[in-house]
Design a binder for these strands. Structure first.
Lengths: 221, 221
DNA sequence: CTCGGTTTGTTCTCCCGTTCACAAACTCCT
DNA sequence: AGGAGTTTGTGAACGGGAGAACAAACCGAG
């Protein structure tokens, strides 16, 4: 991963905790919408689907934002988590590959509501140039570099077929993008300092199939 | 989780390993397409993006399918992993919620090629009843029970808005579905014995944003 | 002010997963 | 046949995360 200098005194939050913070954030937002002003770790844990001890330990990495004997102020805690994750600021994002999945991503409201702004949709197919998806015009892939520079894009989403993914990733890295969310079913190789997260739709199904298969064997024994 | 009886002598594969088997399967399929007949753990690990020691340990849970001094027979190993996961058999699947994401999932070729067959697309909106997506006609949600029974469906995919997800899950469970892949941004509560896996598009982006934010702080310090 | 009830923050222990390192086993060349 | 070179499978050390359990801190009643 990235090297840390000794002077880097930023609190070190465990990776497992980082992965759960967005879940807590969503649960808190739901509670705010319900009009709740205060909640205990037990309640919040139930809403987030985790153990309450785990939740408390996770939150303790951010600081002491609760009150003993009372619980957490929902709105205050929500802001603190949002700030820690970084979704209080605006994150410009480009999506490459406007197939079925690209369409779905461009229209996904969960992005905009969490500080992610889709500034461009790119596709290699010139035929799609005139299309407008979710209020954003599809542009040729070659515009990538210009758009990244112009909007200060740091995060790129790859929703292309597998064969094109590595090329797209290379171009993204060359343009200055340092974080990539990859939906293509390929292992991407990127230089150190660039983060890649992978979402694979069929892998999740295969994991379910494995367990399902075992369930069947169990009842048969 | 599910209770295990003492007589249940099925090899116990660690969860972390199960999650990686589909990755190996895909890497092996790529190698087969390239005409490779044999590969070392080092090569396969590189193709799958993991450590070679981890790969060997993972494979050792399935049995001894390699040859020391030589490596693994690509085609043979591929079949063994596929059999272990259960993708050599046919898995009928229903998708509920034919919005943008449902469309993308229905059209995703990665499902069919791995033993998953979409037998039905369901949507609560009666207006969509006549639509045909990926060669499958959209049907009303109330047909769920009948279709599950008729095709012996064990796996359901939820691609609805968040508010509808819990209801859909309840109906799925009532119909006999025991494995659910949830794309809706909600925590589902299901009875014991039912597996739920969650894919959340915006959570992955938020994790990237967190790391991206820290990168910025680092260069500034 | 004191005491009982409640809830957080944290320590401690246990377990799972990762990685190293090496013996066992196989091939090929001489 | 024997030895050098490879590569697998696994034992053992190591690190991180999960959960239980408890002390510290807060509120409210009397």
């Amino acid at each position: 991963m990235t090297a840390r200098t000794p002077s880097d005194s930023v609190r070190d939050i465990p990776e497992a905790t980082v992965a759960r913070l967005p879940v807590y954030l969503r649960a808190l937002t739901t509670l705010v919408d319900l009009g709740t002003t205060t909640c205990s770790s037990e309640e919040l844990a139930a809403a987030a689907g985790v153990n309450s001890a785990k939740l408390r330990k996770d939150l303790s990495y951010l600081g002491s934002y609760g009150t003993r004997g009372v619980g957490y102020d929902v709105d205050y805690l929500r802001y603190q988590i949002a700030r820690e994750i970084g979704v209080t600021q605006d994150w410009p994002v480009v999506i490459v590959g406007i197939g079925n999945l690209g369409h779905a991503l461009a229209n996904y409201s969960g992005f905009r509501s969490r500080g992610f702004r889709v500034v461009a949709l790119l596709d290699a197919d010139p035929q799609r140039k005139d299309e407008v998806v979710a209020g954003v015009q599809v542009r040729p892939f070659d515009d990538l570099e210009r758009i990244v520079k112009e909007h200060g894009v740091a995060i790129g989403v790859i929703a292309t077929p597998a064969v094109a993914a590595q090329d797209v990733a290379d171009r993204m890295v060359a343009s200055g993008i340092r974080s990539i969310l990859n939906f293509a079913p390929t292992v991407l190789s990127v230089p150190a300092g660039v983060d890649v997260r992978k979402v694979d739709l069929s892998i999740e199904l295969q994991i379910l199939a494995y367990h399902e298969q075992r369930k069947g064997q169990e009842t048969a024994s």
